[in-house]
Structures are given as C-alpha cells and as structure tokens.
C-alpha cells in the first residue's frame, strides 16, 4: 500500500505538483491524502493520519518546496502526527521498517541550486532535515524525486517527469510483491 501525503495549498492552481499527482493517483493500492483539502484550518486529525500511515508500506511526501522545506501544513502534520510514543521514543515503533519517498518540485532551475547559484547550495543540502525526520521514525529513506525548474518545464518535459515518478512507484510495488 502506497500512501501519498499531498501538500499543496491551492491544488486547482497547481501545475507541476498536480501533474505528478495525476500521473500516480490511479495506481492500484494507493491512497492520496491532500492535506490542504482535509485540514484548511490546520486542525490535523492525528488519529486518521496515523491509521492511514499504519495501512501503508511506502509513504510519499509530495509537495512544492517552499522556503527550502515543506509547506507549513506538512510541517504541522509532522508535529501533530509523528508523536513521541507512536513514531519515536519508547514504544514509538509504528513506522519502523516503512519506506519514505520525498517527491518535490522547485521553482528555480538546477543552476540556482549550486554554490554559484542564487540559492548558494546544492539542493541536497536542503534534504537532511526531512531525511532525518523520516529516519528518526525508523523509515527507510529513498533517493528523493526532485523536479527542478517547474516554472519553465515544457509540457513534454513535465509529462516525462511524471512518467518517471509513476515508474518508480510501480517498481516499488512490484518489488514488494516479489518479496
């Protein structure tokens, strides 16, 4: 079971994230939770979210990068859902052995994420916080899926990226079945 935690404040105005989501949402054994639709008031229902996590084997955090990290509601989701005694700490083993894929889009092209670029760092420099969040809860971290230059990608490029994401999820599902 794949759980897609989708965090986009304005899904109807979304292009790149919407394309990625659209490419995977019809996969079998896949559940999408669009946080901004579920909790526009940020009143995240920890119980419902935990139940969805418990059902899943792979958790996908799918969102645009805002200020080098996750959107505010996903951060809120981390704080409310990944609680001590459930996700970490004594008895906090609910996520042990599950896998995690970070799938994001950025508004700058790849050159911006270099030492000379306007963000002064390679994109991998911004991943550790999220990566460690997953690992701290005992999840296996996959190589992130990053679509750069979401503002300039052409339709064919976007479609190709979406197909790549779909392929990765399908491969995971096939491997899971083989095991």
């Amino acid at each position: 079971m794949i759980l897609v935690i989708h965090a986009h404040p304005y899904p109807r105005s979304s292009r790149s994230t919407a394309a990625l989501l659209g490419a995977v949402r019809d996969l079998p054994e896949l559940e999408v939770r669009s946080l901004y639709d579920l909790y526009p008031d940020f009143d995240v229902d920890a119980g419902a979210e935990r139940a969805a996590l418990e059902r899943s084997g792979l958790v996908v955090w799918l969102h645009p990068i805002y200020w080098y990290t996750v959107p505010a509601l996903l951060k809120q989701w981390f704080e409310v859902v990944l609680a001590k005694g459930w996700a970490y700490g004594e008895g906090g083993t609910a996520l042990q052995g599950k896998e995690c894929l970070w799938a994001v889009t950025t508004g700058a092209d790849e050159d911006a994420y270099t030492e000379q670029g306007k963000h002064a760092h390679d994109f991998s420099a911004f991943a550790p916080v999220v990566k460690q969040t997953a690992r701290f809860c005992g999840m296996r971290w996959h190589e992130p899926f990053v679509l750069h230059g979401a503002h300039i990608v052409t339709e064919p490029q976007l479609a190709a990226a979406a197909a790549r994401l779909r392929e990765r999820l399908e491969r995971w599902a096939a491997q899971r079945q083989a095991r």
Binding site: P9, Y10, R12, S13, Y36, D37, P40, D41
Partner: peptide, 9 residues
Amino acid sequence: LGMDRYRAR
C-alpha cells in the same frame, strides 16, 4: 463554487 478549501479559508 470550485475554490480550493485553503484559499476559501
């Protein structure tokens, strides 16, 4: 009327 929930908020 079709507005995103968070936008409506």
